[in-house]
């Protein structure tokens, strides 16, 4: 039979256990970014271009009829160069490498940028065929970010290349 003091002690300790669980299950509150900041997520997944060569008629003639593809394309993909500027200032520079043992997979990048809410000039440039100089894709626009907003910079060749969402 439990003594009254033991019962009171148990009640206090079970109460303390429940209070501890209850408090840290929801408190203190957590906020990932300050309330006057917006988030830009740069996320691109793209297959770099390949350096293809047109086969000569002689070469094609030597091939079996069922294998006479006019273009000779290597398996490897090109690296991709990417540059991001915010308000005219360089924010991010990278060269994305193709994935896969044979470097024939997609090149990817994922990066988060925290910017103060307000108007910003965002410029993105990309070159997916590094044997050619310059950038074959680019996108520049003035965006107005509201606090807590998530803006995505992505790439889709079927939708005109680089885009902001």
């Amino acid at each position: 039979m439990l003594k009254p003091a033991a019962i009171v002690g148990q009640l206090i300790l079970y109460g303390a256990f429940a209070a501890f669980i209850g408090y840290f299950a929801t408190s203190p509150k957590y906020r990932q970014i300050p309330d006057d900041v917006a988030l830009i997520k740069l996320s691109i997944s793209h297959l770099g271009d390949r350096e293809c060569r047109k086969r000569t008629p002689e070469e094609l003639a030597k091939l079996p009829p069922n294998m006479r593809a006019p273009m000779d394309c290597p398996r490897e993909r090109s690296d991709i160069r990417l540059e991001v500027d915010f308000d005219g200032q360089p924010a991010f520079r990278t060269v994305m490498h193709p994935t896969g043992l044979y470097k024939d997979g997609v090149s990817t990048v994922y990066k988060r940028f925290e910017l103060k809410a307000g108007k910003h000039q965002v410029a993105v440039r990309m070159n997916d065929k590094l044997i050619k100089p310059g950038f074959n894709f680019s996108k520049e626009a003035e965006v107005t970010l509201v606090p807590g907003q998530v803006m995505v910079i992505d790439f889709n060749p079927d939708h005109g290349g680089l885009f902001f969402k």
Partner: peptide
């Protein structure tokens, strides 16, 4: 809402503590 970043959240520190630690 994936278009916005969550504000102040009631947070489970027993299980999710790793996220603030990463931040």
């Amino acid at each position: 809402n994936l278009a916005t970043v969550p504000g102040d959240l009631g947070f489970d520190w027993f299980i999710l503590f790793i996220h603030p630690l990463t931040d």
